[in-house]
Structures are given as structure tokens and as C-alpha cells.
Design a protein around this nucleic acid. Structure first.
Lengths: 219, 219
DNA sequence: TTATAGCACGAACGCTTGTTCTGTGTCAAG
DNA sequence: CTTGACACAGAACAAGCGTTCGTGCTATAA
């Protein structure tokens, strides 16, 4: 019953390999990963895993391994993906594109549910320009938002300032007769606005910054 | 553009094989199934499918095929998830925790492959404190990095400054006799270092900021 | 016509990979 | 002490497998 440390490592590697790379590992790949120089030892331990009913093997077939209980992980993950439409660019001088609920053929980004808990009314925008740098958001960053017209104190929201004709991302605090918009960067000072002038567009849930290939955000 | 009858059969077979049997087929298996006797013909048509963006191939690896858009959503996603170990916190005054390759029971975050293209040697760290704010990275942000000791000019890297005993995230530029470390925030000035003093820990691929539940990053 | 590109075939090369065989060391039961 | 199950290492073999090369066919453009 007791799996050795080696065997547990092997099983974990096989599971991960099958999931990530889309194909089971070879005997030698397993050996290299868990630190076994001899293929026969890997083979031996694989047979142990078979006897324990954890994996199945196809004889004389390369990568002839299958995890019997992909059980929780792989499958659970499949249903744990949220697709979010990437509606377009957002810049300081423009209103936020409306998340048209018929949103269909726009680009989508996929995130797992451990990153975004909510699911309804989500949309994403790519920030254009440096205008949101005081919110620690850079040119090219992607912000994931939830559409809503109100917000709790302290939440990060996208607001449209009517007079200024400007979109900005700030933490919002309602005070006596005014609204305080606090930049995320603690070294910067808040601005104060008449409640009539601020129009909440949505709550910011997530900021994603890709540094490698700034334009490779497509699915 | 137009896929030939053969190519459509091949793609369908690859998809089904990856799903049913849990592993992609070999070139000869494909050939046998669609009635091609020559492996080079299969190889040729596989490259067509690659050019069409329908599959991906790993060179010189048996069964090195992956269906990029395997029709059925659930499956596509299941094999399109990358798990990245969240190794711990990172602060300015501490070295980066070493991604021990035996990394097993640490916390994991899941990302889809359209967010992170690479998958080898990845690890994630949660930033503690405001020390990286000049890199537009806030307290609580998660950075996804790829372990490596070198970097190209302009890449965002985590470096350990030996004398200062300090970790910092900057864009790196090698100049004549010195290394320029450029903060991401364009309004901040670069610092210059002796090459001997900088030790590259890894390349930053991704920054994720969760604004809703800063502590709810678990899987 | 020639030239070019797309598609296909067969064969050969060489690395990959599963399998098997021999041998070593440990440990508990007899 | 001997025996045998168990875990492991190393080497060698044979089949599996991706790659490449030379060749031929067809259709379209020059």
C-alpha cells in the first residue's frame, strides 16, 4: 500500500506531464526527473504503480502510460476556467467600451477560477498609454473588471469623470460631501471630486502584466 | 487555408487519440490510420497542420504533437493549463527562494497557456512590501518568473545585488563596463552597477495583481 | 516549352525507447 | 547461516520513431 517517496514523485510527474505537455513521459524522462539512472528501475517502479492500480501501461508502446485516476485535478481544472472577453483598449481620454452583453466574437482570455472568483459580468481591457501609471498600471497591462455602477469604500474602480472627460482607475472612498479618489501608489495624493461628477464603470478585480510578448494575448 | 481530406482526417485522428488514449499518436500510427505508407508524407502533412496553426510539434520527441484547438472546449483547456509553484514571498532584503526542482507540495497557481507561453522552470513569488513599487509592483502582487542566470538586454529580471544584499526587479541593459538597471516606471532614473555585483535570478514573465481578496490565492 | 511549387512515395539513417539480463546489497523469515 | 523477496544499477538488444534524402507526378505560371 505504502508508496515510496520515489513512486509518489513518479506518479506526480506522470500526472503533470500528461496534463501540461499533453503526453505522458518516457521511462527515461521519468528517470531523469526523479533521479534514477537506470531505466529498469523506473520500469520496476512503474510496475509497482500498475499493481497499485494507479496507472495503466500499454506494452511495447512509447509513452504507453496512463494515469487511471486523473481524478480531481485535470478534470476539475477543466471546469474551472473562466473566459473573459477582451473588449478593447482603454485610455485616459476615452470612455470605457461598453461590455455589450451579446459579446461574442471578441477576443477572449482564459483564467482559472483560483485567480478570478467571480464570473458574471466580467470583461477585460488593455490599457493604452501611461495615464494610469499612478495606479501602478502600465502601458499594455490588462485589467479585468466586473461591470457595476456602485462600489464599496476602498475598492478599486474605474470611474469616468464627466467634466474632465477622463477615465481613471482609483480606490474610491465616499466622504461627507465629496468623493475621494485615492491612487494606488501610496506616494501620490488623492483627488477629490463632487459625487455628481464621478460615474463608476466597474470594479477592478485583476491586473495582468505580460512582460515577454506584449502582443501575444490571444486565444 | 483549405485542408485536404487527408489533413482533416489526420487532425481528427490526432485529436481523438490524444483524448481517448491519453497520448498523441506517432507518425506511423497516423499513417496507418489514414492510409499513408510513407512516414515522410505524414510528416509533410503534419507540417502543413502546424503552418495552419492547428497543432504544435516538439522536434525530435516521440509523439511530440499537441492539438492547439481541439474543438471540444473542456479538453482543450484541460491540457492547456500550466501549474506554477508559488514558492513564497519575495522582499527587497532577501534572496529569492530557490526553486527546488523537487518542488512538490508547495502551493500552486494555475494559468492558461495563452497567458504564459513557456512552461519549463517557472515559479511564482508574492511580493511583500512596497520596495518594488518603482517596478510598478505593489505589495501582494504575484510575479511569475522563469529561472535563468542570463538575460537579454531590455528584459525584466530579478537581480540580487551582492553588496547591497538586496533583490530588485528591473529592466537590464548591459553597457560598456557597467550594467544599467532601468526601473519600469519611466519617470524614475536608472541605477548603474558593476557587473560583478549583479546576479540574475530569473526573468519576469508576468505580474498578477488581485485586488479583491489579496490573500485568496490558493488552489 | 521550361520553371516552379505543391504533394506524394520509398528507403535509409540514427537516435529513442521499452524490454530484458546480469549483478549487487539489504532485510526479515526460516 | 541460508533463503528469498525486494529495491536498485548498469549494460545491451531490438523495435519504435522522427528525420532526411532522392525521386516522381501534377498543375499552374512564365
Amino acid at each position: 500500500m505504502g508508496l515510496s517517496e520515489r513512486q509518489r514523485k513518479m506518479l506526480e510527474f506522470i500526472t503533470r506531464s500528461s496534463g501540461d505537455k499533453g503526453r505522458p513521459p518516457t521511462i527515461r524522462e521519468i528517470g531523469a526527473h526523479v533521479g534514477i539512472s537506470s531505466t529498469s528501475v523506473v520500469n520496476y517502479n512503474l510496475n509497482v504503480l500498475v499493481r497499485e492500480g494507479l496507472i495503466a501501461r500499454d506494452k511495447e508502446v512509447s509513452r504507453g502510460l496512463r494515469v487511471v485516476h486523473p481524478g480531481g485535478k485535470a478534470f476539475a481544472m477543466a471546469s474551472n476556467i473562466v473566459q473573459i472577453p477582451l473588449l478593447g483598449k482603454i485610455a485616459a481620454g476615452q470612455p470605457i467600451p461598453v461590455p455589450d452583453n451579446a459579446g461574442s466574437d471578441s477576443e477572449m482570455i482564459s483564467l482559472t477560477r483560483d485567480i478570478v472568483q467571480e464570473q458574471e459580468g466580467l470583461f477585460a481591457l488593455q490599457v493604452k498609454g501611461d495615464s494610469m501609471i499612478d495606479a501602478l498600471i502600465n502601458d499594455g497591462d490588462v485589467v479585468v473588471m466586473k461591470k457595476q455602477q456602485s462600489a464599496n469604500n476602498g475598492e478599486m474602480v474605474a470611474v469616468w469623470l464627466k467634466d474632465e472627460k477622463e477615465t481613471t482607475l482609483k480606490r474610491i472612498y465616499r466622504e461627507q460631501k465629496r468623493v475621494r479618489l485615492q491612487p494606488m501608489n501610496p506616494s501620490m495624493k488623492p483627488i477629490f471630486q463632487d459625487p455628481e461628477n464621478v460615474e463608476i464603470q466597474g470594479k477592478v478585480l485583476l491586473v495582468i502584466r505580460q512582460l515577454q510578448k506584449p502582443s501575444a494575448l490571444r486565444v
